[in-house]
């Protein structure tokens, strides 16, 4: 059951080709008491708006950010360039906080 020792020695910079998933032992939960989606991690609770929740819930390690942006742009009928910008900004911030990982 021992997992590999993956020491992080440099900042992970994401691109549209990156496949992003939740960070180690980070949880995406619905908080019934406060009626909102949250990310739970060490000493922090990050409240998510509905869009952020959709983006993060689809980052399950199965598809690239480019694929995700394409899906969202079809579903929400929006320009993929705008969506791409928002998605990259959100995910880079969460990767920097170690709430998400490549």
């Amino acid at each position: 059951m021992i997992k590999s020792h993956d020491t992080q020695v440099e900042r992970s910079l994401i691109t549209t080709q990156s496949i992003v998933r939740l960070g180690q032992r980070i949880r995406l939960n619905f908080d019934k008491t406060r009626d909102q989606w949250i990310l739970l991690g060490p000493e922090k609770v990050i409240s998510l708006d509905p869009i952020a929740q959709v983006i993060i819930s689809r980052c399950d390690g199965s598809c690239s950010i480019a694929t995700l942006v394409e899906q969202l742009s079809t579903e929400y009928n929006a320009h993929s360039k705008d969506i791409e910008e928002d998605v990259l900004l959100l995910l880079q911030d969460l990767v920097d906080k170690r709430f998400m990982q490549l």
Partner: peptide, 9 residues
């Protein structure tokens, strides 16, 4: 702790 995959502060 890290070998067991638990995040560390």
């Amino acid at each position: 702790i890290r070998e067991a995959g638990i995040p560390l502060t």
